Deep mutational scan, measured.
Amino acid sequence: MQIFVKTLTGKTITSEVEPSDTIENVKAKIQDKEGIPPDQQRLIFAGKQLEDGRTLSDYNIQKESTLHLVLR
């Protein structure tokens, strides 16, 4: 499924993921596309910071959901 990751600069990254993918996994995909190390990434969805060990389905993230990427 496709999800969108919006950066603070307003850029939107499209990523191909599975509901069973972990947040860590998603951060790795963002690193592949943007070159941002996962340890600098914080992903936010519905006002919550997403934890690395959890999966997209844990957070009820569905296709075409938009996550927000904040850098630390």
Results as ranks from 00 to 15, higher is better:
1 M>L: 06
1 M>P: 03
1 M>G: 04
1 M>W: 11
1 M>Q: 03
1 M>I: 11
1 M>T: 03
1 M>A: 03
2 Q>F: 13
2 Q>A: 09
2 Q>C: 09
2 Q>W: 13
3 I>T: 00
3 I>L: 06
3 I>G: 00
3 I>F: 01
4 F>A: 04
4 F>C: 04
4 F>H: 09
5 V>S: 01
5 V>H: 00
5 V>W: 03
5 V>F: 09
5 V>M: 04
5 V>Q: 00
6 K>A: 07
6 K>S: 07
6 K>F: 08
6 K>G: 03
6 K>T: 10
6 K>N: 05
6 K>E: 07
6 K>Q: 10
7 T>K: 04
7 T>I: 13
7 T>G: 06
7 T>V: 08
8 L>S: 13
8 L>T: 13
8 L>H: 14
9 T>L: 10
10 G>T: 02
10 G>W: 03
10 G>I: 02
11 K>W: 11
11 K>A: 08
12 T>Y: 10
12 T>W: 10
12 T>I: 15
13 I>M: 07
13 I>S: 02
13 I>H: 04
13 I>L: 09
14 T>R: 10
14 T>W: 08
14 T>D: 04
14 T>N: 06
14 T>A: 09
14 T>F: 08
15 S>Y: 15
15 S>I: 15
15 S>K: 05
15 S>W: 14
16 E>F: 13
16 E>R: 10
16 E>A: 08
16 E>G: 04
17 V>S: 03
17 V>G: 03
17 V>R: 00
18 E>Q: 13
18 E>G: 08
18 E>K: 14
18 E>P: 03
18 E>I: 11
19 P>R: 06
19 P>Q: 06
19 P>D: 06
19 P>E: 08
19 P>F: 07
20 S>A: 08
20 S>P: 03
20 S>L: 09
20 S>E: 09
20 S>Y: 11
21 D>P: 01
21 D>H: 05
22 T>H: 04
22 T>A: 04
22 T>G: 03
22 T>C: 03
22 T>S: 07
22 T>K: 08
22 T>L: 11
22 T>E: 02
23 I>T: 04
23 I>Y: 00
23 I>K: 00
23 I>V: 10
24 E>M: 13
24 E>A: 15
24 E>D: 07
24 E>P: 01
24 E>G: 12
25 N>H: 11
25 N>M: 15
25 N>T: 14
25 N>W: 10
25 N>D: 12
25 N>F: 11
26 V>C: 01
26 V>T: 02
26 V>K: 00
26 V>A: 01
27 K>W: 05
27 K>T: 03
27 K>F: 07
27 K>Q: 03
27 K>N: 02
28 A>C: 07
28 A>L: 15
28 A>I: 13
28 A>Q: 13
29 K>I: 12
29 K>Y: 11
29 K>M: 13
29 K>C: 04
29 K>A: 07
29 K>D: 06
30 I>N: 01
30 I>L: 08
30 I>R: 00
30 I>M: 03
30 I>K: 00
30 I>G: 00
30 I>Q: 00
31 Q>M: 14
31 Q>V: 06
32 D>T: 10
32 D>F: 11
32 D>R: 12
32 D>N: 11
33 K>T: 12
33 K>C: 07
33 K>A: 13
33 K>I: 14
33 K>M: 13
34 E>W: 15
34 E>P: 02
34 E>Y: 14
34 E>G: 06
34 E>A: 14
35 G>K: 07
35 G>D: 06
35 G>T: 03
35 G>N: 07
35 G>L: 04
35 G>S: 06
35 G>I: 02
36 I>Y: 13
36 I>C: 04
36 I>T: 07
36 I>H: 09
36 I>R: 03
37 P>Q: 07
37 P>E: 08
37 P>D: 08
37 P>K: 07
37 P>G: 06
38 P>K: 15
38 P>T: 15
38 P>R: 14
38 P>Y: 13
39 D>R: 10
39 D>Q: 11
39 D>C: 11
39 D>A: 11
39 D>S: 13
39 D>H: 12
40 Q>C: 10
40 Q>G: 05
40 Q>D: 10
40 Q>F: 09
40 Q>Y: 08
41 Q>D: 02
41 Q>K: 03
41 Q>P: 02
42 R>W: 13
42 R>Q: 13
42 R>F: 14
43 L>G: 00
43 L>N: 01
43 L>I: 06
43 L>R: 00
44 I>V: 10
44 I>G: 02
44 I>A: 05
44 I>C: 11
44 I>D: 04
44 I>Q: 06
44 I>S: 09
45 F>R: 01
45 F>V: 02
45 F>L: 05
45 F>Y: 13
45 F>W: 09
45 F>S: 02
45 F>N: 02
46 A>S: 09
46 A>R: 14
46 A>M: 14
46 A>E: 14
47 G>L: 03
47 G>P: 00
47 G>W: 05
47 G>E: 05
47 G>Y: 05
48 K>C: 08
48 K>D: 06
48 K>G: 05
48 K>L: 12
48 K>I: 14
48 K>R: 11
49 Q>E: 15
49 Q>Y: 14
49 Q>I: 15
49 Q>D: 15
49 Q>P: 10
49 Q>T: 14
50 L>H: 01
50 L>V: 04
50 L>T: 02
50 L>D: 00
51 E>N: 06
51 E>W: 06
51 E>K: 09
51 E>M: 11
52 D>W: 04
52 D>N: 10
52 D>M: 04
52 D>C: 05
52 D>L: 04
52 D>Y: 03
53 G>M: 08
53 G>N: 12
53 G>K: 11
53 G>W: 14
53 G>E: 10
53 G>A: 10
54 R>F: 11
54 R>G: 06
54 R>D: 04
54 R>H: 12
55 T>P: 05
55 T>E: 03
55 T>L: 09
55 T>N: 04
55 T>H: 05
55 T>I: 07
56 L>E: 00
56 L>M: 05
56 L>H: 01
56 L>V: 08
57 S>W: 09
57 S>Y: 10
57 S>C: 04
57 S>R: 12
58 D>G: 03
58 D>L: 03
58 D>I: 03
58 D>H: 12
58 D>T: 04
59 Y>R: 01
59 Y>W: 01
59 Y>T: 01
59 Y>E: 03
59 Y>L: 05
59 Y>K: 00
59 Y>N: 01
59 Y>M: 03
60 N>Y: 06
60 N>R: 07
60 N>F: 08
61 I>Y: 00
61 I>Q: 01
61 I>H: 00
61 I>R: 01
61 I>F: 02
62 Q>P: 09
62 Q>V: 13
62 Q>F: 11
63 K>G: 13
63 K>D: 14
63 K>T: 13
64 E>S: 11
64 E>F: 15
64 E>D: 14
64 E>Y: 14
64 E>P: 05
64 E>Q: 10
64 E>I: 02
65 S>T: 07
65 S>Y: 08
66 T>K: 04
66 T>M: 11
66 T>G: 02
66 T>L: 10
67 L>Q: 01
67 L>D: 00
67 L>H: 00
67 L>T: 00
68 H>R: 08
68 H>C: 10
68 H>M: 13
68 H>L: 15
68 H>A: 05
69 L>V: 05
69 L>K: 00
69 L>Q: 02
69 L>N: 01
69 L>I: 05
69 L>M: 09
69 L>Y: 01
69 L>F: 03
69 L>S: 01
69 L>T: 02
70 V>C: 08
70 V>W: 10
70 V>E: 11
70 V>S: 07
71 L>S: 08
71 L>A: 07
71 L>V: 12
71 L>I: 12
71 L>K: 06
71 L>D: 06
72 R>M: 14
72 R>S: 12
72 R>N: 12
72 R>A: 13
72 R>V: 14
